[in-house]
Design a protein around this nucleic acid. Structure first.
Lengths: 219, 219
DNA sequence: AAGACAGGAGTGGTCAGACCACTTTTCATC
DNA sequence: GATGAAAAGTGGTCTGACCACTCCTGTCTT
């Protein structure tokens, strides 16, 4: 038997092989993968090794297994791997800062992108959000930020942001308080005008409020 | 001892148990985890089940295993999670533009971070790079950008940028041409002065030159 | 005494086989 | 044709075995 990669981990090879199988056989989202026993025979590996690879992909949320039925390919947008990851990541003290900061990097970039594009600035969603604040008096921080990143149009950035958001164990979906509304309004106003600096300042101000509020008490 | 959680996956429980063990025993980055056989006994599970959990965490880059030595806790910033995810994400055709744009997002963020911090602005590396341009007449674009992101100090951002760089099919380590030197010098100069807007403009100008030189324009 | 070497202990890597629990399919029976 | 029990297929788990590698240790050689 040939052993082309003695140094690398077998189960990592299996992961790669699985990807090949998925693409070659055209298995689509929700589709069924070959059974563990069949894979073991096809890939010339023990079933436990196959399982190690499958379990990895499952934790990543890329596949889904149902006892008695089989293993299925999953839409990777569902991945709940993040909760597990978050728990581990939070053990490294200084990593929390990096995660939050990186999240803000993407939020800021979205603001910049919108300010630079008059078509994006004119999107009705900003008005709609602005009015919502006046009516309800509150708005989900997550909603506004997400809308901005979506509007910016960079889907990879959106994915990364979404991931980072879940890493932050900080309650991110809290309602804003009244004293935050001014910052948010200012942000939306300047966003519509394309005033880059003022928008970023308002954003910065808002972030400060959200963070300080977190220090005091929760809800 | 009966298992009280028939519905949940055992190996997911193990992942949770491992987390407890890590916190309770105060295992730090680089520290050694109990052996697979010991874990199997302590957690009342088969070794294969333990391994499935460990392999999952390994693919996530949270632990590292060395044959003959043991299993070790890893700094999360090395996590390949992004890589695996990226591999799947990259299968979407229109993502190339997003990748390049996202890379620039992180580069821009680094510039902003440096401009805001006088200590970072005063770093000797900028002078050194500036002189190198005068002497050699050329500089690796990658070097300058990397230095900036490293200086910014966000290691997660650095990791993401590094990743994106690899996914850009464009050869990124090209030498700059002479007409680019002015932009680069301008960038470094303004960076040292903390002039945010001028620095970003110089950066933008530089990017344009690099892209036009390649004859590949998007947007 | 210092170095070299062989062996054992510990550890991860892999495999094969055996059950179990569950779902789907098959097929004999009514 | 409908029903339901058996069979087949599949994931879930455990056990025991063997291999390859690393590290430690104690003996032997110089």
């Amino acid at each position: 038997m040939q052993n082309p990669k003695p140094s690398s981990k077998m189960f990592l090879d299996i992961v790669g092989e699985l990807r090949s199988i998925i693409t070659e056989e055209g298995i689509e989202t929700g589709g069924k993968l070959p059974s563990e026993r069949e894979l073991a025979e096809r890939l010339q590996a023990g079933r436990s090794t196959i399982r190690e690879a499958l379990r990895s992909l499952e934790l990543l949320g890329l596949i889904e297994t149902r006892r008695g039925e089989g293993t299925f390919l999953v839409d990777f947008r569902k991945h709940q791997l993040v909760e597990v990851l978050a728990a581990f990541i939070m053990q490294q003290p200084d990593s929390v800062t990096d995660v939050q900061e990186t999240r803000r990097i993407h939020e800021t970039a979205a603001i910049l992108a919108i300010c630079k594009d008059s078509a994006l600035r004119a999107l009705p969603v900003w008005d709609s959000l602005f009015k919502k604040i006046d009516q309800d008096g509150e708005i989900l921080r997550e909603d506004l930020v997400r809308e901005m990143i979506v509007a910016a149009g960079n889907r990879l950035s959106l994915k990364i942001w979404f991931l980072l958001k879940q890493y932050s164990k900080v309650p991110f979906s809290e309602m804003t308080k009244i004293d935050e509304n001014e910052s948010v309004k200012m942000l939306l106003l300047n966003l519509g005008n394309g005033n880059v600096i003022a928008t970023l300042e308002a954003y910065s101000e808002w972030i400060k409020l959200v963070e300080s509020e977190r220090g005091d008490n929760n809800k």
